[in-house]
Amino acid sequence: MDISTIIQILFNSLRTGSIVALAGLGIVLIYRTSKATNFAQGSIGTINAFVAGYIAHATGLSIWTSTLIALGTAFLTGVIIDKLFIRPAGRTASPVNKQILTLGIILILTGIMNMNIGILGDLFTPRYPEQFISSSERVMILGRNIQWNTIFIVALSIFLLSAIFLFIQKTRWGLAIRVTASNETAARLMGVPTKTVTMIAWAVAAMLGTIAGIALAPRAPAGLNPGLLIGTQVSAFFAAVFGGFQSFFGPVFAAYIIGFLLSAGRYGMSSYFGQPSIIADLIIYLVILIILYFKPFGIFGKAPERKV
C-alpha cells in the first residue's frame, strides 16, 4: 500500500467519522438532557436536508444560503418535537416509553417525507444537492487529489464539535446543560431553566443532524432520500454506546474510530478480496456488536446499578 492510498483512506475516514460524530453528538446531547435515546435523529436530519436541497434547486440560491435556511427549520423541528411530544411525556414516562415515542416520531417524519400534496411532493423529490465546494476544486496531498469539500466538511465538523465542547465546558449555559444532564430535579430546584436547556438540546441536535445530512447527500448512492441517514444513525448509536452516553468526548472519539474502520474495511474488501465493499460493513458492524457484548456500556462506560 502506498502513501497516497493511505492518504485517501485517511480522508475518507475523517469525512465519514465527522458525519457520524455530528449525528452522534446530537444523540448524546438529547440523552443527557431528556433521558431519551433519540432514534429519530436521522429522520430529523434528513427531512431538513431535503429542505436545503429543495431551496437550492427551486430558488437557485447557493447551497450555503440554503443550508443556513435549513438550519433554521431544523431548529424549529427540534423545538416542535420537544414541545409537542417529549415535554408532555415529562418525568412520568419511563426511558423505554420515551424511546418508543421517538420511534413514533420516525414514522411521522417518514410519512411526511413520503407525502405528495402540493409543494411537498416537489420538496421531497430525491435529488443530489451540490457540494459545499465543487468537486473540481482539489488539492494535491502526498500524491493524492483530495477534494476541498472533504477538507471543508472535516474542518467544519471539528470546528463545530470543538465549539460545542467549549460551550459546554466554559459557559453558563454549558454549565446548565451539564447540571441538567447529571440531575434534572436538582438542577430545576437550583433555578436552572431545564425546560429551555432541553429544548435547546433538541434544537441543536436537529441542526447537527441536518449538517450531517447535507454533507452526506451529494455523494450518497441514492442522493437525498428518506433513508439517507439510516446507516449514519446506526454508526452514531454504535459510537454513542461505544464511547459512553455518560461523556461528550467519548462518542465523538468513537465516531472517528468507526469512520476509520468503515473506510479501511471497504477499501481492503474491494482491493484485496475482490468482494463488494458492503461485506466490509457487515463484518465491521458484526465485530462491533461482539465487542459491545463484552463491553456493553462502552469502553469508558459503567453499568448502571440496580438498587435493591
Partner: peptide, 11 residues
Amino acid sequence: SLRGFDDIFTG
C-alpha cells in the same frame, strides 16, 4: 395523493 398519511397515522 394521500401517500405518507399511513405512516403519519401510525406514528
